[in-house]
Every structure is written in structure tokens, then in C-alpha cells.
Nucleic acid binder design. Structure first.
Lengths: 124, 124, 124, 124
DNA sequence: GTGGTCTAGACCACG
DNA sequence: GTGGTCTAGACCACC
């Protein structure tokens, strides 16, 4: 399980970690029922505060992606179980696409990039 | 010119406003050379402080999308002139797509949504 | 006499105009005793407000570069007569050089650029 | 770390502060990875409002010179990483040199001053 | 009339 | 304890 954080990324660390774990789950690299690394270990590996990782896990739990059992760690609840509303999901997508348009990329090029990114999300 | 802000949105107001204006520019609803509403007026309309809107405008100027002339308002500089790097643009796209996958949507459905959103960005 | 203003330049118009006139005087294209164009005409040519040009002229007069005679226009007072203090002049120079350093240009390249710019200032 | 602001300087305080920090970075007195003083502390030291310094820091971040980590302060990102365009840099240089010419300084004297200033920018 | 800057002070987010 | 955001209100600069 490879998770990396980028200090130059302006998103908070807990969000970077949560996003990376989401990607692992989406790709199937972390399957249903599989255990996530202990908070303490992941924190040490990444060189960040334990509380920061705890926040990431809590967020993933709130979205229904993992279950945290006191004393026995966190496990992936179920792929495709994110508690989100399609309408709410569209806004970040729209913003991302807007940036591409404003950067001057053609619709064709943008669709190509979307396909590339989708491809990486379905590898497994 | 319709701009709305959502108090439940976790993003800061100034960013919501900037994003909405970017979308208007991308869609061509705000064309090159066209004037943006005065800072104070938009602030009053949205019920927020003048400074908040000023921050939005300053950010849009820093990205090269508008030019602010001290005594005479802000105008759209040039569509497709955002100072951004394709690589930096991909991360938000990837995150947005990941959310759809985790919500259980099929690749086909996701591509359909992307096409819908792209369609709205090229209306004009 | 060619003066141009750049709407994308974030400096106030009156300052752009004053700076351009200073450059003309420094280069000798506007010699001592020579008349500046009437405020009204320059304003029309540039498509700006008359008051804006008046401010430029007033600033040039304050610096001792021109004399404004009520009713008979403005004339170049004397080249090399700017009322300025060497120490005060260094700050903008230092800032300009700092920007080059931070942009990663080598000392050699920077000195070359300085020589190029100096060359253009002594054409006449 | 010595930063001073000059109330007689026409530039806004936040810009003076940003320029001084840029100079410190260019000179190497603030090296890569080194921490900047906390916003509140610098504000108190200079006797200005916290927000004013926050604006300086935000500008430096936008130029890529520092990275701000939400709960843990601001650090120098990388010397020589300013996101700027050589052409845009020349105008301030040209204006600075013009002022020297108009003050009656000889080309030789001006080049000497440039060398002096460049020397101070490469001390470390 | 426009936008720019600055202040004092409050409350929130992050680590 | 760090920075981020927002407000209300003042005063200045520009056109």
C-alpha cells in the first residue's frame, strides 16, 4: 500500500491521505473487508501527527467507506458505498472541467484526458 | 449575471464566487472585454462583505482571467488565458472521477455525465 | 512623439504616461525647452480622461522635469534635472534586480539585460 | 531577520513586506525550507494588522516562493522559483534606470551602482 | 463613482 | 499555536 503526501500540495494533509485511500479503494487495491494500516503506523510512515491520520479515517468512516472498530483497527466497508449525492459530485467535476477549458484545451483533448484518468481508476 | 453562494459549501465564499465567475467566462456568458459587476454591488447582492468579493477579483486577476482598472472596474481579460499547468489540473479531475466510481456509478454513466457537463461549458 | 498605454499594465494610467514621457526625455527625443503636447490633445489621442493626463504633467512638474505655464502649455525644463535622491532611486533598482535573481537568471545574463536597457536609454 | 517598513513609501505595506522577504530569499538569508516568522508575530513586530502580513504571505505563495502549511507555518519553497516572465521583469528595470539617467548620473556611475546592488544580492 | 488598503476583532481549520 | 476566513467600517487613489 503506497500512500504519499505532497508538501507542496495546498490541500490539508488529512484530505490528501483520505483521497489517496479513496483512490486505492476505487481501484480495488484495497478490497472489501481488507484492513487499513493502523493509524499509528501510517502516521509514522508518513512522518505526520497521529491525529491527522485519525481525522482522515474518521472522514472515510463518515462517508461510509470504512468501518472503524475500537481496538481492532479499520477495514474497508464496501466499495461503491460512498454516501454521496450525484448532484453534489458534479460540482467538483464541473470545476475541474472548467479549469481545462480556461486553460485553452480543446474539448477533444479534455475528453482524452478524462478517458486516461478513468482508465487508471479501473485497473483492477 | 447569476451568481449564487451556498453556505453549506465548505469552500470559502471568495472561492465559490471566483469559481462561478470562471464558469461564466468559460461558457462565454461573460465575453472578453465585458465588465464584471462592481465589487460593492456584487457584495450587496450576495449579502457578503465587500472585501470578500475583492479577494475573489484579486484571485481572478492573479490567474490572468480579468484585468482590474483602478477607477473603472474589472473586465474579462481573455477567455482561455488561465495561467495554469495541465499536470496541476489533473488532480482535481482525478478526485472528482474517483468520487463517482466510489458512488458506484458505471464507467459508461460517468462518461455520460462528463459529456453533459462539457456540453454546458461550450454552449456559447 | 509616440506614447502608448497598456490596459493590461496594472500601473495607473497617469503613471504609465509620466513614465513614458520620462523615457522620451531621458533618451533626448524630447529636448530641453521643447513643448509637450497639450493635455487635451494627448488625452484624446490616448482615449483617456483629460484629468488623468493633467495628473501626469503635474507629477512631472513636481519632479522638476517640466514647467507648466498657465495658458502656454508645458515644456521640458531640463534633462538631468530630476529632483531625486540617489538613495531613493536605488530601491526600485534593487527590487527589479531581485526579481531577476528570483527568476533564476544568472548574474551574467542580468548584467547583459541591464546593458541592453541602458543602450536604449542613450540612443540620442 | 530584519524587516522594516517605511510609512513614507507610497507602496502598500503588504507589498513592502513581500519585497523585503523576496530580497532576503534572493540573498540567501532565508534558505530553502527555512521557516518564516508567524504571521501574528511579524505583524506585532512591525506594528501592523495581522491581515496585512497575511496578504504578503499569500502573495509570496502565489508567486511560488513560499509554501504555507495551514497549522504549521510558512517555509521558503525554493529560491529561483518565481513564476515570472522575463519580458514582464524588464519594465521595472527600465523605469529604474530611466530615473538614474534623469537624475543626471553618467552611464558609468549607473553601471557601478548596478554592480553594487547585484553584489549584495549574491552575498550568500 | 470605481477599486485599494488597512484596522480590530471574531471564529474556524489544521497539526 | 499555527494560518484562513469573514465582517464592519474607515480612508485613500484613480478616472
Amino acid at each position: 500500500m503506497f500512500i504519499t503526501i505532497d508538501p507542496n500540495d495546498r490541500r490539508p494533509i488529512y484530505e490528501q491521505v483520505a483521497d489517496e485511500i479513496k483512490a486505492l479503494i476505487a481501484r480495488g487495491e484495497l478490497g472489501e473487508g481488507e484492513a487499513l494500516p493502523p493509524v499509528r503506523q501510517l502516521a509514522t510512515d508518513l512522518g505526520v501527527n497521529m491525529n491527522t491520520i485519525a481525522v482522515s479515517y474518521r472522514q472515510l468512516q463518515a462517508e461510509g467507506l470504512i468501518t472503524i472498530k475500537h481496538g481492532s483497527g479499520a477495514v474497508v466497508a464496501s466499495r461503491f458505498a460512498a454516501r454521496t449525492d450525484e448532484k453534489e459530485l458534479r460540482r467538483p467535476l464541473r470545476n475541474a472541467l472548467t479549469s481545462f477549458v480556461l486553460a485553452g484545451l480543446s474539448t477533444g483533448r479534455i475528453m482524452q484526458i478524462v478517458k486516461e484518468e478513468m482508465g487508471e481508476l479501473s485497473q483492477k
